[in-house]
Computed example of a mutant assay.
Amino acid sequence: MSQAAIKPQINRVYRKRLLVHRFGIALSVLAMTIGLAFLMWILWTLLLKGIVGIEGLGLTLFTVDTPAPGSAGGLRNAIVGSLMMVGLSTLISTPIGILAGIYLAEYGETNKFAQLTRFVTDIMLSAPSIVIGLFVYALYVAKVSHFSGYAGSIALTIIAVPVVVRTTDNMLRLVPNSLLEAAFALGAPRWKVATLVRLRAVKAGVITGALLALARIAGETAPLLFTALNNQFFSLNMNAPMANLPVVINQFAMSPYDDWRDLAWAGALIVTFSVLLLNILSRTVFSQKTPK
């Protein structure tokens, strides 16, 4: 077949592929636009209603506890309770997750136990949070016969640990082998290479993983319904039911009282902006800088 006869066929194939390519790009842009439109709609509604709730309450929102229906109040006890439980779970999950990530990166290639740990971690990352709440309820709350802030922290810790483990494992695998071989050539033991060389090289990414885990558990509601429950009063006793923002938002948003719904919108705005600030912090201040 001559080149003059082949060229039209090539052009037809090219035009067909170009048409399919443009059609796929158009569908992708359309899907992205629809998703962004709904997201902006949600954020705009939250911003409008949340600001109204915050403006109407002012500093009362942060200095007064949750009220009875029809009376003025704030979210002090819920904010403090959330900070205590999330803070405790972060203090527990971060070192456990980092150490487990180091173990997987160092021994995960050939060790069967490490491979099983990585598999279980991947499953836990996608496990519904309500299942974790029921698990902690059955093993802890049902045994001690009362809800508590400690139970809530345990549930949040179980959710946060897999995030830290997977992030640490993935970041440590990015370290070049030449850097590790140079450290071994200087006579450094393996534990020093893992902690002082390999971990230090990706510390920004590990810190980012810890912040992302913190953002992941900050707005969890389902596990806290089965563990910490709620408390109308201000309390620092973590061995008793403890107020927290997600459960208060869930309770107040479904109530028929306008003042409670205003508090729910204000609390939702606080949680959203807290998570947003954590994500911005993890992507800017602690982002891994690439040398020029």
Rank of each mutant, 00 (worst) to 15 (best):
D65S: 15
T66V: 14
T66F: 12
P67D: 09
A68D: 14
A68P: 02
A68I: 12
S71P: 01
S71K: 13
S71V: 13
L75G: 06
N77S: 11
A78G: 09
A78S: 14
A78Q: 01
I79H: 04
V80D: 09
V80N: 10
G81S: 08
G81F: 02
G81P: 07
S82C: 11
M84F: 11
M84V: 12
M85G: 05
M85L: 10
V86Y: 04
G87K: 08
G87I: 08
S89C: 12
T90Y: 01
L91W: 09
L91R: 11
I92D: 09
T94C: 10
P95Y: 07
G97K: 00
G97S: 04
I98N: 00
I98M: 05
L99W: 06
L99T: 05
A100L: 15
A100C: 15
A100K: 03
I102K: 01
I102C: 03
Y103T: 06
L104P: 00
A105I: 03
A105M: 08
A105K: 03
E106M: 11
Y107A: 11
G108K: 15
G108E: 12
G108A: 15
G108D: 13
G108L: 15
E109D: 15
E109Y: 11
T110Y: 13
T110N: 14
T110L: 08
N111T: 11
N111L: 11
N111D: 15
F113R: 10
F113G: 02
F113L: 15
A114D: 09
A114S: 15
A114P: 12
Q115T: 02
Q115H: 09
T117Y: 08
R118A: 09
F119C: 03
F119D: 03
V120N: 07
V120M: 12
V120G: 00
V120W: 13
T121W: 04
D122P: 02
D122M: 06
D122C: 01
D122A: 04
D122W: 05
I123G: 05
I123S: 07
I123E: 04
M124W: 10
M124C: 13
M124I: 06
M124T: 06
S126W: 03
S126Q: 09
S126R: 03
I130G: 10
I130N: 08
I130F: 15
V131C: 14
V131L: 15
V131N: 12
I132Y: 03
I132P: 00
G133T: 05
G133W: 00
G133V: 01
F135C: 03
F135D: 01
F135I: 06
V136K: 02
V136E: 04
Y137K: 10
A138M: 13
A138T: 14
A138P: 05
A138V: 13
A138I: 13
L139M: 10
L139R: 00
Y140T: 05
Y140I: 14
Y140K: 04
Y140M: 14
V141Y: 01
V141P: 02
A142H: 12
K143E: 14
V144P: 08
V144G: 04
S145R: 13
S145K: 14
S145W: 08
H146I: 05
H146V: 07
F147R: 03
S148G: 12
G149E: 00
G149I: 00
G149W: 01
G149L: 01
G149S: 01
Y150G: 02
Y150E: 01
A151R: 06
A151N: 07
G152Y: 05
